[in-house]
Amino acid sequence: MARLADPRAMSPSRPGRTRTAPPVMPPLFPARGRYRSYMLFGACCVFFLLSSLLFLRVVDALAAGPEAWDDLLRQFRHPLYLAYNVAALAGFVFTARRFFFQLFAKSQPPRIGPLPRPPLAVLPPLLGAAWVAATALIFCILWGAFP
C-alpha cells in the first residue's frame, strides 16, 4: 500500500553549500492591499463557530420548554447579543458575497461528475438566485406565511 508523501522526502541528507533565504512574509501582509479582505474573510470563521453554538442553544431551549424559549428570546434582546448578531449578519453577507461571486466559479473543475461544468459566467447569477430564493423561503416560513 502506498504511503503518504512526505514533503521532506526529496531533501538532501546534508545541507548543500548554497543556502536558501529564510522565508519572509510579504510586506503588505496581513492588513494592507488584497491581504486585508483575505484576512477579513478568514476572520469571519469566528462567526461560523459562534453562530453554530448559538443555534445549538436555540435547539436546547426548544427542547427544554416554553419558559426556556421565552427566556432565550428575552436574552437575545440584550444589546450585546444584538450587536453580535448584527456583526455576524454582516460577516455572513461578506462571506457569501466573496464565496458565491468571487471564489466558487474559479474553484470548479472542468467536469462535475459525469456532467460538464456550466459556463463560468452563469454560476454567480445562479448562486445569487439560489440565495434570494432560499432567503425568501426562510423569511416566509418564519414570518408565518405558511401554516
Partner: peptide, 18 residues
C-alpha cells in the same frame, strides 16, 4: 452558512427578539 445563515440570524436572533 452563506445560503441559510443570514436569513435565520436576521429572523430568529434580530427580528423575533425585537
Amino acid at each position: 452558512g452563506c445560503l441559510l445563515m443570514p436569513a435565520f440570524i436576521f429572523m430568529l436572533c434580530i427580528a423575533a427578539p425585537l
